[in-house]
């Protein structure tokens, strides 16, 4: 598919063009960026799920998709699983739990390897979310395994982050990873059909009461207290309560002004990242082509003066990479 063909098919609502565009943003290929420019009012809302493997995230996502489809909303799911650090390969198996939505044209499911993304998972995911919004999806659900940095990456992208726990946590709630309390907007205690779920809820409640209230915007009514929602995802129980909590959190973000703040901060961070990418490319080019610069660099033995020289040059004309259209 050429870039023009891709753009035409994307705008015509062709799923394959959307899928190909997402592959391109996974590589941070800039050629599809104009497709991300959504018509007004068509940005998707994003909720992220994270938690240990086997806690039931995919099953929860599946249940939530069912609820949202009953409300006639279109839903896109991005499910990430870790890649092997040794080979880069991966088995992406989250779709298995979402099979009842197969062939529903208003449901799009995409599996992503969580590693090996240029610039990190959150950058690729943000681009993918904009594509999904521009394509016309109302809601985007992210699923990520709570290992490594991936849950932090998801929290940096989602409007609402849901942390999933279960009764059969090996070492109890005390052992949940540092940083989780800070990123959770909602806790789900899934598998509430299993013994011990009440203890998890109580331990969690105790832990939350000890932690400092979440920083919140000046003038906002009150800080957000992450609710704890018991669910039996496998039986579609607690899903309406979960969705009500997501919507309450969204209203809170709007009312407190944090929605805007967050959007602004994220867009600024992302802009800085894109500037760095553009600059890096130009710097490599300058260093590759300019023998004089290389000679001075080698003479200095440190990178700083050459770097300043390049930045000064960039200031005179930083050009974005040409688009092939």
């Amino acid at each position: 598919m050429s870039d023009i063909e891709l753009a035409r098919r994307f705008r015509a609502g062709d799923i394959r063009a959307l899928a190909r565009a997402i592959s391109l943003v996974e590589r941070r290929d800039p050629s599809v960026r104009e497709l991300e420019e959504a018509p007004k009012g068509s940005t998707a809302e994003v909720v992220g799920f994270t938690g240990a493997p086997g806690t039931g995230k995919s099953t929860l996502v599946d249940a939530l998709v069912s609820l949202l489809r009953k409300q006639k909303k279109s839903v896109a799911v991005i499910a990430t699983d870790p890649n092997s650090p040794f080979t880069g390969g991966a088995i992406l198996g989250d779709r298995i739990r979402m099979q009842r939505h197969a062939l529903d044209p208003k449901v799009f499911i995409r599996s992503m390897g969580a590693r090996g993304h240029l610039g990190g998972l959150s950058l690729a995911t943000r681009e993918a979310i904009r594509l999904l919004g521009a394509f016309g999806f109302d809601q985007v659900i992210l699923e990520t395994v709570g290992v490594g940095q991936s849950e932090l990456e998801v929290a940096a992208v989602a409007g609402t982050t849901v942390v999933v726990l279960t009764p059969n946590l090996g070492d109890g709630v005390q052992m949940i990873k540092a940083g989780i309390l800070e990123i959770a907007d909602i806790f789900v205690v899934n598998k509430a059909d299993l013994e011990g779920h009440q203890r998890v809820v109580m331990e969690l409640r105790g832990m939350l009461s000890l932690s400092a209230p979440r920083a919140h915007a000046a003038g906002s009514p009150k800080a957000w207290k992450p609710p704890i929602i018991p669910t039996v995802a496998a039986r579609q129980e607690g899903i309406e309560e979960l969705w009500a909590a997501v919507e309450a959190h969204r209203r809170y973000l709007e009312a407190s002004g944090q929605a805007r703040e967050l959007a602004e901060k994220r867009l600024k961070d992302e802009t800085a990242e894109v500037v760095a990418e553009l600059a890096r490319e130009q710097a490599r080019q300058a260093l590759g082509e300019d023998a004089g610069l290389t000679a001075r660099l080698m003479e200095d033995g440190t990178p700083y003066r050459a770097a300043e020289e390049i930045v000064t040059r960039l200031g005179r004309g930083l050009k974005p990479p040409a688009r092939e259209h």
């Binding site: 394959r16 899928a19 592959s23 092997s84 991966a90 088995i91 198996g93 779709r95 298995i96 197969a102």
Partner: peptide, 30 residues
Amino acid sequence: RALRDAGYEVIYTGLRQTPEMVVDAALQED
């Protein structure tokens, strides 16, 4: 597993798929 270990990204969709489901998923997954 062998394909993963060889560096491929494998999307496993499980049992009892129809040809339509398989192709639709392959398109979404590129």
